Computed example of a mutant assay.
Amino acid sequence: MNTNTFNGPHGWMLVADRREVFPDDPGNGTPLMVYAPKATASGTLGRVLDTAEVDEARNANAREVPGDVMTWLENVADQAQTFVYGD
């Protein structure tokens, strides 16, 4: 299994994808992505944890991530990172 989807509150998801890890090019790939309900907005886990925002899919506007979703992401971040990168 190369991907693991963590389902959060209100339809938010965190997708961990091992296929997006490139050891020879660490800046390439997006192994940990956060998706708003119905995939209307997304962002990397790192950015979301830093800014509490995702980018809208149809435009360049930022969308605020609800507080309870941020709490959930903080709680599952280590588990998702362990899935992608190992122990």
Rank of each mutant, 00 (worst) to 15 (best):
M33C: 14
P66D: 10
N75C: 08
P31H: 09
M33Q: 05
G43T: 01
V84I: 10
T44L: 02
R47G: 04
A36T: 07
N28M: 10
R19L: 14
N75F: 14
D25P: 02
L49P: 00
A41G: 10
N59Q: 13
E56I: 02
N61Q: 13
R47N: 14
E74S: 00
D24S: 14
S42E: 00
G8S: 10
K38D: 15
D87T: 13
A39M: 15
G27N: 05
L32W: 11
E20P: 07
N4H: 10
A80W: 01
K38R: 15
G27D: 11
T5W: 05
A52G: 08
A52M: 03
D17E: 04
A60R: 08
M70I: 13
M13E: 13
F6R: 05
E53T: 10
D24R: 14
R58A: 15
G86C: 07
G67R: 15
A52W: 04
G43V: 09
N2V: 06
E56M: 04
A62S: 12
H10N: 09
F22L: 12
G11A: 04
D87G: 12
V21Q: 07
R19A: 12
G29L: 14
T82V: 12
E74P: 03
T3L: 11
T30S: 07
D24Y: 14
V65M: 00
V69R: 03
M13V: 13
T71R: 02
T44D: 02
D68K: 09
D87S: 15
G8H: 02
D17L: 06
P66Q: 05
G67V: 05
G86I: 09
A80S: 08
T40R: 15
A16C: 05
S42P: 03
T82N: 11
P23A: 00
N7G: 15
R19F: 06
M70H: 04
N2L: 07
V54E: 07
A36C: 09
R63K: 12
F22P: 02
A36W: 03
V15D: 04
T40M: 07
T3W: 11
A41Q: 11
A62M: 08
R58K: 11
H10C: 06
P23S: 03
F83K: 06
N61D: 12
S42C: 01
M33I: 14
E20D: 06
Y85R: 06
T5L: 03
L73F: 04
E53A: 06
V34T: 00
W12G: 08
V48G: 06
Y35M: 01
P66S: 07
L49G: 02
P37N: 12
D50R: 08
M70D: 12
